[in-house]
Nucleic acid binder design. Structure first.
Lengths: 219, 219
DNA sequence: CGGTGTGAAGCCTTTCACAGCA
DNA sequence: TGCTGTGAAAGGCTTCACACCG
């Protein structure tokens, strides 16, 4: 996970969605301003980090008062590029793919799922949510016609690289990989991975450390 | 995500499962030894990092030759605490929880799912895989009787903190949180989170950066 | 006075480069 | 000779602490 030549550090970028979530919560409760201390509490980080992170966006706070909630949400969304929707395609509709397809959280956060694709002919045409499973051969057409920006790979490991290649060829701009394997894509296609078994193994390490040793993390 | 007082850096711990996966792949193909260069290629990192990481485990390589695949798997598993199984309970059986319950990847990596728990009475007794959904009131009993070590939270955000409290009270030793909210647990309970919408937002940032600017990550 | 914005210090991680061993 | 193991350098992230402003 290396860094772009941007002014905003990677570590900060990774926390902006967290701040955004807390700020939306405040906005929903009609709170107008928030201090770094309060926001830190909500986001589970410390206040110095909040101030430093927000300072990369610009000097949007008011000394003695705090930050304007609405304005800060707007600025974070602008920096994250969330001002327009990014349509998503899910490739691979096994257990995980189906769960992702049914998960409402994407839609409501600006990432509508607009296509479901699988290589298994038996799955073609099957309805999931309000979509139907399409053939992977229709991927390029779907990406072009529905302006798909993000590809989610939820296939078995052995299919992942080929799917990634097809997604890139079809013109998808970034990829989220759930398959437990390393895939490679061109440098200009942002790629992130989520590996459930890896997370458990990391927990396992700290859990055993725990009982002989001292404290690890907080989230 | 702060660091334990262990000799193995957090960043290294997070990569050990990745090396393990590559090594198991090699072992399955009857490969006996591997160089840092090859392993780096497979794991998608660079060779210097591999050598540095492995050096924290001990000096297990042979100069001029490389690392013994079987032995290295064993050592990594030992350090990660994977020598015994860690039974898992999933709390919350909506889309995501059900998908996780049906996902075979946990079982085969030493994290058998032994209990499914939900607060919704309508779900009680429902079969998923080869388990039945139980009441959250039976959590403590289940944790004790089945030696459950890990709790996975797959509930809506608003229920997550209470579930976390109950898991801790029941004696679970570490927690993986899929709910899109910050939860707090005692210092001695390792906690990790996976937030799907956050991942997409991070991708969004690099994707827009992409088109005006230079290269971000590789995974 | 309260709380931001930020240099500076400290810590952690990555990368380099090469000595040293099989 | 080939490849590991590791000091040292470089870079990035976090924390500190306080000047400064509303």
């Amino acid at each position: 996970m290396a860094g772009a030549r941007s002014r905003i550090p990677d570590a900060t970028v990774a926390r902006l969605p967290l701040y955004r979530r807390s700020l939306l919560d405040l906005a929903g409760r009609r709170v107008a301003t928030v201090s770094s201390e309060q926001l830190a509490e909500m986001a589970g980080v410390n206040a110095a980090k909040v101030r430093k992170d927000l300072s990369y966006l610009g000097s949007y706070g008011t000394r003695g008062v705090g930050y304007d909630v609405q304005f800060l949400v707007f600025e974070i969304e602008r920096k994250l590029g969330l001002t327009t929707e990014s349509p998503v395609v899910i490739v691979g509709l096994g257990n995980l793919g189906q769960a992702l397809a049914n998960y409402g959280g994407f839609q409501e956060r600006g990432f509508p799922i607009v296509a479901l694709v699988d290589a298994d002919p038996a799955k073609l045409g099957q309805p999931i949510g309000d979509l139907f499973v399409e053939s992977i051969d229709d991927l390029a057409t779907a990406v072009a016609e529905r302006a798909i920006a993000v590809g989610i790979i939820a296939t078995p490991a052995q299919a992942a690289q080929e799917v990634a290649d097809r997604l890139v060829a079809a013109g998808v701009r970034s990829i989220l990989n759930f398959a437990p394997t390393v895939i490679s894509v061109p440098d200009d296609v942002p790629l992130r991975k989520v590996d459930l078994a890896t997370e458990l193994q990391i927990l396992s390490f700290y859990q055993q450390r725990e009982r002989v040793d001292v404290q690890p993390r907080a989230s």
